[in-house]
């Protein structure tokens, strides 16, 4: 019988929405039970949020001052000691899960299945390769299955559950070779989260400057949207790195994605394949972004945004 353990991603007070997406993937495994483990310094509120997700049987709460920040070298040995009770150990394929899960898999001596986008059976999964330009169907060998879940492929699991919360003592020695120093966010926390927003307004190199990005933010605010960007826009410093969308940035699935001054390189498109509707505005009629756009408009992005703001006023 299959038993799935999902690692909760959180910031100490809030459960990250990617965890609820990983639960939706876990449900497709047709497991006998799905448990969530919350590793935190003080995790009671996160554990309660996890317990409210429908379909979760049990929340394991592992509290340790070392778990204040998500450092893979500390979390991995604790999770390994719990993992042997399970057939599957999953985490979202965010920078959190990507950093952590291979460390666990290697210690358990099993391969990892990255970016699960579809569950065919308890041992067979689909995952993207080549920036999503090919999909492979893979079968895991015998042993615990460790995987990360491509969150854009799964809906957020509903609330309405009432799982029990169990405090767990994990007595493993934690290494002293790694020290958390700091984390700084790019700001803009008052705006919707890029990975959860229904609408995303995104700017590329065509926006031209950090100053000009104000028009992107302005339109986003009018639409209640999150703000995204191409790698080129991040590289030249128009906008902080946490806004990058693409193969090596965030993979997102908003209902509406609006791209302004983005050419549509395959690495960028890899991040928006699951968007409901894509709108592209570019002054170059031959820009590849138009090949994937549901609605394309050839024109100057600044003029288009001005006209859009008027039309929406």
């Amino acid at each position: 019988m299959n038993k799935v353990l999902v690692i909760a991603e959180h910031d100490g007070s809030n459960l990250n929405g990617s965890t609820a997406r990983a639960i939706s993937c876990a449900k497709d495994i047709q497991a006998e039970s799905i448990d969530i483990v919350v590793l935190a310094a003080d995790g009671s509120s996160v554990a309660e949020q996890a317990a409210a997700l429908a379909g979760v049987n049990k929340v394991l709460l592992v509290q340790n001052p070392a778990n204040e920040h998500p450092v893979a070298a500390f979390l991995a040995p604790q999770i390994e000691s719990l993992a042997t009770d399970y057939t599957h150990v999953l985490a979202p394929s965010t920078t959190f899960g990507k950093d952590l899960m291979p460390r666990i898999a290697a210690h358990l001596g099993v391969p990892q299945i990255s970016d699960i986008m579809r569950v065919e059976s308890a041992t067979i999964f689909d995952r993207p390769v080549y920036a999503g330009n090919a999909i492979i169907t893979v079968e895991a060998p015998a042993g615990i299955i460790v995987g990360t879940v491509r969150t854009a492929s799964y809906p957020v699991a509903e609330n309405g559950g009432s799982a029990s919360i169990e405090n767990r003592e994990v007595s493993v020695e934690l290494p002293s070779h790694t020290r958390f120093v700091s984390v700084s966010t790019g700001g803009g926390e008052e705006r919707p989260d890029l990975q959860a927003a229904a609408t995303v307004v995104s700017g590329g190199r065509g926006v031209g400057s950090e100053e000009n990005f104000k028009v992107i933010y302005g339109l986003a605010d009018k639409l209640g949207a999150a703000v995204g960007a191409s790698r080129a826009a991040v590289d030249v410093g128009f906008i902080p790195n946490d806004h990058q969308v693409g193969q090596t940035g965030k993979i997102i699935a908003p209902d509406l994605y609006m791209a302004f001054g983005i050419s549509g390189a395959i690495q960028h498109l890899a991040g928006i394949k699951d968007a409901g509707t894509i709108v592209a505005v570019n002054k170059d009629a031959d820009a590849p972004i138009f090949e994937v756009a549901d609605f394309g408009l050839v024109g100057d992005l600044f003029q288009v945004i001005e006209d859009l703001e008027k039309a929406l006023a």
């Binding site: 910031d11 450092v71 965010t94 920078t95 959190f96 950093d99 002293s176 070779h177 790694t178 020290r179 958390f180 120093v181 700091s182 984390v183 700084s184 966010t185 790019g186 990975q195 902080p240 790195n241 946490d242 965030k250």
Partner: peptide, 14 residues
């Protein structure tokens, strides 16, 4: 300094 979903994180490692 690491590029993480939240922004930039700094670790010190031996």
């Amino acid at each position: 300094t690491r590029e993480v979903d939240a922004g930039l994180e700094t670790l010190s490692v031996d």
